[in-house]
């Protein structure tokens, strides 16, 4: 049963990820990205990482993508306007980045197997409690540094977006 769910959700995320690339309509592409993120969250859930799954939906699908849609709807980009935006060497840069990422992912995760089906992880695994203990214990400093990074990004965004006060 879990295997069936795994194939369903991974198929869903891969399919919708392809749609993100191939849809001409920006809004449809964004919606397909939401479905991708949701599918990945379901995969997290199948891997017993419940907290991560909830956060993935809450932050990415529920908040970040809403802002994407916001911008798309307000600018209401048509097809012609989109075709105008073309950078030189965009294709070449894209291919190089993609191949590098693929090599990295394949070499890194080749031998790993997911804790599906049989592995006994204990009751605590993936719960809010255990994730919290890791974040505020072992990984406290990276966690705090990340939050400072995000804070800097927020302040930067506000400064850029603010109207100059004369």
């Amino acid at each position: 049963m879990q295997l069936a769910f795994f194939y369903f959700f991974s198929g869903l995320s891969i399919l919708s990820a392809l749609f993100v690339i191939f849809f001409r309509n920006t809004l449809s592409a964004a919606i397909a990205l939401v479905v991708t993120l949701f599918g990945v969250a379901c995969l997290f859930g199948l891997l017993e990482a419940h907290f991560l799954a909830a956060m993935q939906v809450l932050v990415y699908a529920g908040a970040v993508m809403v802002l994407f849609l916001f911008v798309i709807m307000l600018m209401n980009l048509g097809r012609e306007e989109l075709l105008k935006i073309k950078l030189a060497f965009l294709g070449i840069i894209g291919v190089i980045t993609g191949v590098c990422l693929a090599i990295l992912l394949v070499t890194r995760f080749m031998g790993l197997s997911a804790p599906l089906l049989s592995l006994d992880l204990g009751v605590e695994y993936g719960t809010v409690k255990s994730v919290g203990k890791l974040l505020f214990g072992e990984y406290l400093i990276p966690f705090e540094l990340t939050s400072i990074l995000l804070l800097v990004a927020i302040i930067g965004a506000i400064t850029l977006a603010r109207k100059p006060q004369s």
Binding site: H50, A54, L58, A61, G62, T127, V128
Partner: peptide, 9 residues
Amino acid sequence: NVGVLYLFS
């Protein structure tokens, strides 16, 4: 175990 977080998400 994620309880209310599921609801929010």
